[in-house]
Design a protein around this nucleic acid. Sequence first.
DNA 1: GTGAAAGCGCTAACAA
DNA 2: TTGTTAGCGCTTTCAC
Lengths: 358, 358
Amino acid sequence: MKPGRDTPLNPTVNDIARVAQVSLATVDRVLNERPGVRKTTVEKVNRAIADLGYVRDTAAANLARRRIYRFLFILPATNNEFVDLIEQQVNDLSQGLKRDRTQVSCLRVPAFDPMALADAINALNPAQVDGVAIFGPETPSVRDSISRLRAHDVSVVSLVSDIPSSERNAYVGIDNIAAGRTAAQLMGRFLGPVTGDVLVMTGSMLARDHLERRLGFDEVMARDFPNLTVLASLEGRDDPDLIERLLPQALASGRDILGIYSSAAGNAGLVRYIDHHRGPTHPIIIAHELTPLSRMALGGGLFDAVISQDSGHLVRSAVRIMRAHSDNAPINMAQERIRIDVYIKENLPPDPGSTTGG
Amino acid sequence: MKPGRDTPLNPTVNDIARVAQVSLATVDRVLNERPGVRKTTVEKVNRAIADLGYVRDTAAANLARRRIYRFLFILPATNNEFVDLIEQQVNDLSQGLKRDRTQVSCLRVPAFDPMALADAINALNPAQVDGVAIFGPETPSVRDSISRLRAHDVSVVSLVSDIPSSERNAYVGIDNIAAGRTAAQLMGRFLGPVTGDVLVMTGSMLARDHLERRLGFDEVMARDFPNLTVLASLEGRDDPDLIERLLPQALASGRDILGIYSSAAGNAGLVRYIDHHRGPTHPIIIAHELTPLSRMALGGGLFDAVISQDSGHLVRSAVRIMRAHSDNAPINMAQERIRIDVYIKENLPPDPGSTTGG
DNA sequence: GTGAAAGCGCTAACAA
DNA sequence: TTGTTAGCGCTTTCAC
């Protein structure tokens, strides 16, 4: 459409300068809360801003500022489809983000290793990065390394697994307690009024997300489904091979295991085991994160439900938040809330990598 | 963070001009595929563009162009919480969109009235709007009015309910057939191995989304749950009062109704009826769209599940697509795919209006 | 404390 | 067919 000479133009800095009777430079100082302006002048300018209903054109601002954002995602170096998905989203996004003068990259650090993570964070040069998104355990060393980043005004968001004790600017991920509750509700309803046991597979005691899911799961199972007994967790460390090895013992414990809640990663081990020991009936299985594997298991009827969070949304949200924080702009929290996705066979999004949207 | 003199700057039009040995104006002509450039020159410029890996800075381009986007959402004038939610999202977004030189507004037209909708669309001045998002029925008159818009290069997206026979640029909404299938799968599993009937409440035969949901629902019920019989639809026209009036007859038909699939709007009527005729046990109810009412019904155990689509995502996606189409830029389809959200009591997002994210 | 002027990457007259 | 130039809205020296 044509520029539209008919549409009312938004007020600009020039208008403010004119109305407030000051120069452009002064308007800019007030706008960016820079020092060196007399109080009365500040007020004059602010009045003009309010009167005109001025909204700053960030695009123009960034252009003039020649600003480039550099964001880093730190992810666990697990052999894990979900983490791979996140990395892929980062890489996919990096292309289009260049238009927005934003550079993103990934760094993998050993999983479940707080020291390695803290070291990696400490090795970062705060002058070379504007924001860091961290998917890792919550420990004192990690917390301290985050403090250092924040002290240098680097924006930090925790990803997937929160680090609330730190000074991170935001958490980007689902409410894991609610996710655990959701799994429990689904498990109980799918199972119906039978009596038996439910096995919970977790990843690591260090991982806050795993802990929270377990918490929520237990809460709802105890409250709503007294007919079902939740067994102690099997700690699989997100390792398919370990899980495949541990599973026989857990399942052969003489208990009547009707359901399995796989609350962490390493589902390949679970799938392999079930596939090889498939009886006439298999337990109700609820797992986490929609990945090629879980998608297949869901489609094939091996998994009954998958609780997930959208990797694309996760990454875009983290970037938006880090950027907003970098030029301390407001954040639309509604847009940034990551939903707890529930997938069953029927609402699986079409196609391979397209587990995304948001 | 500081501008980062260390980070490699992206190539600009000036670089292209220098490398291709032409002027800025010529580069611009090639970039925008404007006529009046010799073929060999075009090639020279394109070579430079490719060699340098140039990516255009759309922000700067729009700034220079003084471009303003005007988008219109046309919504049914039903007394409908979901539509209200969409309108609210549009209004909420309009604020922040001003920064992006984008104006959005809403227009309500009589619901289930193809002529009124077509008239409204035809009344639009193509010179005064860059894109239109339409939530309405698919009829020949509507189709024709869309054709006219498209002929004037106005971008058109269908919202919530697709209009595939038209020349709309895109459909923004969930796959309604899959949504119906999801509802059926949940219904069947929640009900378990019992025998009885399921009532389907629909809105209008004119509404493609309602039709598609019914289709998907029937398909899965027939395939997976032969123990359950799906009754003919009750057509509630999204009208709570009408629904409340029709419900008694439907439920007193002598059949054993174990489940209700409310595939359209007007849930207030359903809730009122059930509330007043609450027996020791009530049917499994699955409804659509997370709204204040359905949220409450879910929390209170009156509804068992809600299939939804995120109104915020819907609106943002529509805007992004209309904008992309306006400056024929590419669309990240992955981001624009609207997910079929499944809500149960446990994964209800916190708080009132915050049904959003994505 | 404040202002004048140059410039960010791109587009759009207007010349040539 | 091509080039020159001014300017979008904002920031940033550098002077006063």
